[in-house]
Design a protein around this nucleic acid. Structure first.
Lengths: 263, 263
DNA sequence: GAGTGGTCTAGACCACGCG
DNA sequence: GCGTGGTCTAGACCACTCA
């Protein structure tokens, strides 16, 4: 049995156990190891795309068996925070170098084959520093009036404008974001965020509705104002469930559809 | 090392290995065990809600270690085919007795709390035996003209009609389905399918679009024909990726939204 | 207290990637 | 041939449930 991390028996992590009540407050060794690795990921000890230490090394560092480290990494891999590659190592997940170009974009061409239409053409309409509305501030966990970066862009596939997006980012983390940066980086925007701002989007939640565009939106998407569109509000989070991006998208669904798998 | 199931070394499962080429064609023991358990699930050896044999029993039956059975069951649990309950056993997953009433329904009230509005009121408009259109037949893997059961219904929350659904089911598996059955069963429709037809929906895929209703649809949902609605086409599968239900839904999204979590 | 799943270990061997 | 992750085993002990 180990000693450096809390073992399973010493466990109730030396909390003042509340008057005879049986609060669980217990966590298995492998979850503690997982938390330690996660902490290193957040701290940037290993950068996106890099390999983390081997299971044997981590086992030695934390003074536990390889099997325990293994279970911790299994969890992290299941959450898409790291990627295992047999024979090579375990790597910090990144939005760059992914087989599917856009990990969080569920819009597919009706033909089914996303590879035929290739990557989206991006057209930045606007990118500026503004003060957060009460609405946006609340969602991003800021105070109304705090600085935020705001961008608007249109994504086109095969020359057809298909997605109109408004993006809000906390001003402190994304100071200096420019339209040029948004356009020139050759890959997913989230990969650019990793590279230039050290911010990794780890998970996201979307609220989807059917709406009609206002005249300006209709114009940008080159559709009539009577065209029903998918409204997709995405809140993306970094480590630790900290919200880092609000994205309001309008998707044309005459040639594309939003795909979701349930289980 | 075991002998009853193929061990890891004998492995390339006695396939005629193609002329020196290194085709993987290899599967670990635990995946073979998983396949065997899956087969028993399909065959109905254990019914939904029942416990499957303990890990020790299965290990003895298949002549492998408990750890190997464990890994197989871990996989099945990750796919929501079984549910583990510490101290009690491992149970065949079911659409009945689930904390979330509707496992495949992602529509939530904007208030966020689905429990306040309670279960949906169901109103069956139609339920009849028809011949499959080419369209429906192709999607369900049938031949045009094959018998299918077709149902149409409206789901209301707090008295407000919110969802209009058309449902198609293979006639052979759902012979004798009646509107009464659709209405009277007190729980998810998929639980009723398990009980009365022995069909378990295991996963599903949805295609989502924004559309305008035709006059009849607008009337049934009590909205104007200019109201944009979410069109949700769901194809639900049983074991073995066999499609067993096509469901075309129209969702009102003025008071509700479709929720999706990405990671 | 008996039985179930859950954790942890230690050690052996296998498959893969790369030099 | 070495190092990496992947599989498999056997055994010990822990946490939960229920009679």
């Amino acid at each position: 049995m180990s000693s450096l991390p809390l073992s399973s028996s010493d466990n109730p992590i030396s909390l003042p156990s509340a008057a005879g009540l049986s609060v669980p407050a217990f966590s298995p060794l492998y979850q503690q190891i997982k938390a330690l690795i996660l902490h290193s990921l957040q701290a940037g000890e290993w950068k996106p795309g890099e390999a983390i230490p081997s299971e044997m090394e981590l086992a030695a560092r934390f003074r536990v068996s390889q099997g325990t480290v293994r279970k911790a990494i299994d969890d992290l891999a299941a959450e898409n925070l790291v990627v295992r590659r047999q024979g090579k190592g375990t790597f910090v997940a990144t939005h760059a170098e992914q087989q599917v170009q856009y990990r969080f974009l569920r819009l597919l061409p009706d033909s089914g084959d996303a590879s035929v239409e290739g990557p989206a053409q991006r057209h930045i309409i606007d990118c500026k520093r503004v003060r957060a509305s009460a609405d946006v501030a609340r969602i991003l966990g800021l105070r109304a009036g705090d600085a935020v970066m705001q961008a608007r862009r249109v994504l086109s596939f095969s020359g057809v404008p298909t997605i109109l997006e408004d993006i809000w980012l906390p001003g402190t983390s994304f100071k200096g974001l420019t339209a040029t940066q948004m356009t020139s980086y050759p890959g997913p925007t989230y990969a650019m965020f990793e590279l230039h701002f050290g911010v990794r989007m780890v998970r996201a939640a979307e609220k989807i509705r059917a709406v009609l565009p206002d005249p300006e939106q209709a114009d940008l998407l080159q559709v009539s104002p009577e065209t029903p569109l998918l409204s997709v509000e995405r809140l993306a989070y970094t480590y630790n469930d900290v919200p880092m991006e609000l994205r309001r998208g309008l998707y044309r669904t005459d040639t594309h559809h939003y795909r979701n798998d349930l289980s």
